[in-house]
């Protein structure tokens, strides 16, 4: 797509949309939203970038290798945090009984490990969205 209006509007919109997605992920445990919704929003901005600037530039921003690493890393973060609870308290994903700090109610750093889990889910969903779209685009025409 070679339209200057669409390119400039995209360049302006993408930082705001990504900031909104990060806000939803980080506030997942004290307000509506969470890892899935915020990750979907960030993934949509990456899809928009690939649509407007072409597959080659999109590959430079978010390559297949990076998608592999972040997709496995997000879920590994979840499992490792769960395993820490398993070691300290005896059950998978034990939160406060596993020794995680509770914090003040209503602040970002509260609720034990829930913010860390939200970040892991957000990374996973973001890379899943962009790799779904890239797989569909890369396939040759039937």
């Amino acid at each position: 797509m070679n339209d200057i209006i669409i390119k400039n509007i995209t360049r302006i919109i993408i930082p705001f949309a990504q900031m909104y997605g990060i806000f939803i992920i980080l506030n997942g445990h004290i307000s509506p939203g969470g890892g899935f919704a915020g990750g979907a929003i960030i993934g949509t901005t990456l899809i928009l970038y690939t649509l407007v600037f072409g597959r080659e530039k999109g590959k430079k921003k978010f390559s297949h290798k990076m998608s592999e690493i972040s997709e496995s890393g997000g879920i590994m973060l979840f499992v490792i945090i769960g395993m820490i609870g398993m070691i300290t308290a005896g059950a998978f994903l034990s939160n406060l009984s596993g020794g995680f700090p509770q914090g003040q109610l209503g602040e970002i750093l509260s609720g034990g490990f829930i913010p860390i889990l939200m970040i892991g889910i957000g990374i996973k969903v973001t890379s899943t969205m962009i790799s779904l779209f890239n797989l569909l685009i890369d396939e040759e025409k039937l």
Binding site: I24, F36, I41, I47, L51, M129, L132, F133
Partner: peptide, 20 residues
């Protein structure tokens, strides 16, 4: 919560995938 997810997935990602 569901409204945010529906607006992001239903109106955004699903339409783009269908167009692809």
């Amino acid at each position: 919560d569901v409204a945010i997810t529906e607006a992001a997935i239903g109106a955004g990602v699903t339409s783009i995938l269908f167009f692809a």
